[in-house]
């Protein structure tokens, strides 16, 4: 009885993991497929499709996405840390209500936020800002609550005794913020900023309303193309953008590298 159950358990896990990895594996396989039909596992493979990525058709949207995601990550990082600092560290009056307000966009679906922003811009006659400025603003609205929440959590988990210890050693508030508080919340803030970059880079539901025709972000370019064709260049685009995201995460992990010292007892 127990044996059957154990087998069923392992089988279930294997099946679920297969389910999770299958589409990824299929896309990677398709990107290496030599034929333009991506219907079967390739028995021979080629990198030709990746060569097509340098065409303007894919390069321009990619660069736009990178530009927007970078600006969005920067803005939400700074604003989120400041807001979390005011609410959690300074404990300004009404902080619970303020926090609820700062996080309220999280409970509104992206597509609804997208509609609201495009309607608002049209009503006040600012269709002209559609494109990069509107995309940045909308993505900040999307990313800021996440960054604020992560920074606030880091600050709330921050051991107040460290701050007091620094104070008893004569550190002024400025010195404490610089030497103790910021370094301690850095990992949380960096993961928030990384997250902001990724959700901006991959975003569809907001961008779909706000891009200007002919000047789109990468995910929008991809779904527009997918309406017509499933050919392997799509697979190559997707794989390349995933590799790019992994590189970004790796980079941020390197920047926040001191976390290694916090968690592994280095000598």
């Amino acid at each position: 009885m127990n044996r059957v159950l154990t087998c069923a358990f392992w089988l279930a896990i294997a099946l679920v993991l297969t389910f999770i990895t299958l589409p990824l594996a299929v896309v990677v396989a398709a990107s290496l497929s030599p034929s333009s039909a991506v219907t079967f596992l390739p028995w021979e493979w080629t990198f030709d499709w990746y060569g097509d990525l340098l065409a303007d058709r894919w390069l321009q949207p990619f660069l736009l996405s990178v530009k927007i995601a970078t600006v969005v990550a920067g803005i939400s990082g700074v604003l989120g840390v400041l807001a979390a600092y005011a609410v959690v560290y300074e404990r300004i009056p009404g902080s619970t209500a303020i926090m609820a307000g700062l996080l309220s966009p999280l409970s509104v679906p992206q597509i609804v936020k997208g509609v609201a922003i495009v309607l608002f811009l049209s009503i006040i006659g600012l269709q002209g800002v559609l494109g990069t400025p509107a995309l940045i603003a909308a993505h900040v609205v999307l990313a800021l609550p996440f960054v604020t929440r992560m920074a606030a959590t880091s600050l709330a988990n921050f051991d107040g005794n460290l701050d007091r210890a620094a104070q008893s050693l004569g550190a002024t508030k400025r010195q404490r913020l610089q030497h103790i508080v910021l370094p301690m919340i850095k990992p949380g803030v960096l993961s928030g900023v990384t997250f902001a970059f990724i959700i901006s880079f991959n975003n569809i539901p907001l961008s779909v309303f706000l891009v200007r025709p002919g000047d789109t972000t990468l995910p929008i370019a991809v779904i527009n193309y997918l309406e017509y064709s499933l050919d392997p260049v799509m697979a190559a685009v997707n794989v390349a953008s995933m590799i790019f995201i992994l590189a970004v995460i790796f980079l941020f992990e390197k920047i926040g590298g001191f976390s290694a010292q916090l968690h592994g007892g280095s000598k």
């Binding site: 999770i20 990895t21 299958l22 589409p23 990824l24 299929v26 896309v27 398709a30 991506v38 219907t39 990724i198 880079f201 991959n202 569809i204 995910p219 991809v222 779904i223 997918l226 499933l230 799509m234 697979a235 997707n238 794989v239 953008s241 995933m242 995201i245 992994l246 995460i249």
Partner: peptide, 17 residues
């Protein structure tokens, strides 16, 4: 990890399948 891949890649994978 698939969460990092973005929705489009995964949806595209299912389209192919």
């Amino acid at each position: 990890a698939p969460e990092l891949a973005g929705v489009v890649l995964r949806t595209y994978g299912w389209l192919i399948i």
